[in-house]
């Protein structure tokens, strides 16, 4: 794949590569020449081929450019959720202005300049949007998203496991947890309702909590 692609790129060779190829002891092996070149130079050759209409070199070049665009955008301070927008807009600009690239110069510098500009555009757009929209972080934190299904399921499962564990406790301990822990009754109320002494309730609660802790966290 790579060989076929580079050979295709070689068909649109500009003067720079022709010179290199003629200097190489094995001029027919264009692939080797390309592999030994710096990535920037390799992309420059691809772009020169793309300017001549070589589609495969062009697609290879654009795919190769995505990481560079992301790195440039990140350096400019673009948030990770906007990086892909910047990549897409930069690719569109590259397509529109590909005739402005001079193959004797650095492709990476040319691409980075375009990517930085698109990154700045994205930051400005975001700035404008943020200035229009109202954010209340306090309200946002106090009212968790009711529609978040995974959170709801997870807490439901946790409660279910706890109830099962309590049901499996010995009757005295279970009673103490239900009265003091779940219904939040005072010691004297619980003592009246169950007919057990406050001391017995306290001991049972202590033992129940210890048993539950052991069950859930493996702590003694």
């Amino acid at each position: 794949m790579s060989q076929a692609l580079t050979a295709a790129a070689g068909m649109g060779l500009d003067s720079g590569l022709s010179l290199r190829a003629s200097l190489d002891p094995v001029p027919a092996d264009v692939v080797m020449v390309n592999d030994s070149e710096s990535p920037d130079r390799r992309r420059a050759v691809w772009m020169a081929a793309a300017q001549a209409g070589d589609r495969r070199a062009y697609e290879r070049l654009l795919a190769d450019s995505v990481a560079l665009i992301r790195a440039t955008a990140r350096r400019q301070g673009v948030a990770s959720d906007s990086l892909d927008d910047v990549v897409q807009e930069t690719l569109l600009t590259v397509h529109r202005v590909r005739h402005t690239y001079d193959p004797s110069r650095s492709y990476d510098a040319w691409l980075s300049a375009i990517a930085s500009r698109r990154a700045i555009d994205a930051l400005r757009r975001r700035g404008r949007r943020d200035s229009r929209e109202l954010h209340d972080d306090y309200a946002l934190n106090r009212h968790p998203d009711a529609d978040d299904a995974s959170v709801a399921t997870e807490s439901g499962q946790r409660a279910q496991r706890l109830h099962e564990a309590i049901a499996e406790l010995p009757p005295g301990q279970r009673e103490a947890v239900e009265q003091l822990g779940l219904r939040e009754r005072t010691l004297s109320e619980a003592s009246e309702l169950t007919g057990r002494s406050a001391g017995a309730l306290k001991v049972n609660l202590h033992r129940a909590l210890k048993a539950l802790r052991e069950r859930f966290h493996g702590e003694p």
Binding site: Q51, E59, D84, Q88, L91, L92, H99
Partner: peptide, 25 residues
């Protein structure tokens, strides 16, 4: 998902590729 959308765009741009006349210095 995102990289496949890049691939789709790159493919689209490749389809529309025509030779261009380079800008003079």
């Amino acid at each position: 998902e995102q990289s496949s959308s890049h691939e789709a765009l790159i493919d689209h741009l490749g389809t529309g590729l025509v030779p261009v006349r380079r800008l003079l210095p």
